[in-house]
Amino acid sequence: MLVQFYNVSKIYPNGVKALDDISLKIQRGEFLFLMGPSGAGKSTLVKMLFREELPTRGQIFLASRSIVRMKRGEVPRLRRNIGIVFQDFKLLENKTVYENIAFAMEVVGASSRDIKERVTEVIKMVGLKGKEKSFPGELSGGEQQRVGIARALANRPLLLIADEPTGNLDINTSQEIMELLFNINRTGTTVIMATHARELVKSAGKRVLMLEEGKIVADNPPGELVL
């Protein structure tokens, strides 16, 4: 079991109840869609996995370690096992494609030889060979998201979290990004993807978790059509 949530609730200081008694298990190697309307709690749930938010109540485990009880100094180790893909890519505009990806390895103190080898590898994996020296501003949205995914993969994470990764992309580009994520999942990386895009989810045949007002309203196993 890679991820376990036990009776997790989150109430923000302003009184908003983002999550309400969530219990959930995710296996290693699984691909999970997280669906639901805006404000259903998808982002909060995802942020708890890399401890940007802490639950008000309940326990969360990643690879059998409690994220809630973890000390501040242990958080970097946790995060090195998680790759994060953002809706707005969050690329550094003044760094090239290569540098953006290398950045993720530099900041965890990887050696320059490892960096060179791995960055070349993930650039090939996401299909950006030849674009190493381009700056984010020179790339299309789909290409920028590929850089974002390559950066998330650089440190060989156990878990890839994608929060609305196709939210800023058109439908064809979204399909390509989905293919890329499925491929990554096939190599053994667990993927959690929060999304609004029903079309993508429908055709995927993966496990789908529906959230509404902070509660799980449906948990459809792989292959079962939703909606």
Binding site: V75, L78, N81, V107, N155
Partner: peptide, 8 residues
């Protein structure tokens, strides 16, 4: 970003 990637 650095913090989310896991730098100390």
């Amino acid at each position: 970003l650095m913090k989310l990637i896991g730098s100390t």
